[in-house]
Amino acid sequence: MNAVVDLRPPANLVSRKAVPFWTARAAIGWVVVLAGEGVWLALTGWFPLVVVLVVTAVLAIAHLAVMPRWRFRVHRWETTAQVVYTQSGWINQERRIAPVSRIQTVDTERGPLERLFGLANLTVTTASARGPVQIHGLDYDLAQRLTQELATNTQDTPGDAT
């Protein structure tokens, strides 16, 4: 008899520090756009650009207020001895399940902004054409423990990860 697959959301949320991180990362992009529009306005003096600048500012504020919190509610992860299970996205949402027996590499990544916020991203590369399974916004210490745990589980799981 086939086992029934439970497609519930993964159990664990990412770090709460991901919310201010996602806000800061998005704010950097908006500041670049707004600065560019401001320079354009200053150089041309074309008054209708004020409307564009105001609309951009309103969109930026809405994006910064909604996106990080929404992503925090959606982004989840879970690992067991058999699988790595993730849910991600904020507009387009995706769930991925990767069997531990298919894991080829487990990596952590931290850019300068992640280091500032004490976060890391975990990338689990499998023998899947779909690409790696990624968990963004993990607390750095947790990401390190998960990397070790998954590497150990992969070593203990029979199979050739193909």
Rank of each mutant, 00 (worst) to 15 (best):
T157Y: 02
L49H: 14
E37F: 14
T147Q: 11
M67F: 09
P68R: 09
G36A: 09
G137P: 02
L122P: 02
V39W: 15
R8F: 07
G38D: 06
L64E: 03
W46S: 04
T123F: 04
Q144N: 14
P112I: 13
N2Y: 13
V84R: 00
V124K: 00
D160N: 06
F47E: 13
F21G: 00
T108D: 01
A129R: 12
M67E: 04
A81T: 14
G89C: 05
W90K: 02
T23F: 11
R73K: 08
T86P: 05
P158E: 05
R73M: 08
I103G: 01
T79H: 02
A35C: 11
G118A: 09
G29F: 15
R76I: 06
R110Q: 08
R95E: 04
D107T: 06
Q104L: 11
R73Q: 11
I103H: 00
E37Y: 11
P48K: 05
V66I: 06
T147C: 11
Q148D: 15
F21P: 01
A81L: 06
Y85M: 01
S128A: 12
Q87Y: 01
F117V: 02
G159I: 06
A161Y: 07
V55L: 13
T152G: 01
A62L: 14
V19T: 08
A98P: 01
I61K: 07
R95Y: 04
A11N: 01
G118Y: 01
E109Y: 11
L142M: 13
S128E: 13
T105N: 06
A24F: 02
V33Q: 07
N121M: 05
W40Q: 15
I28M: 06
V100W: 02
Y140L: 10
P10C: 09
L59N: 10
S15A: 13
L116M: 11
M1G: 07
V50Q: 07
K17Q: 15
V54D: 14
L116I: 07
T157V: 05
G159K: 02
G45V: 12
L49T: 08
P20E: 11
T125V: 11
R76C: 12
E37R: 07
W90Y: 10
G118H: 05
V33W: 10
G38W: 04
V83T: 03
N2D: 10
V83F: 07
L142P: 04
Q144H: 14
R130T: 15
S101G: 10
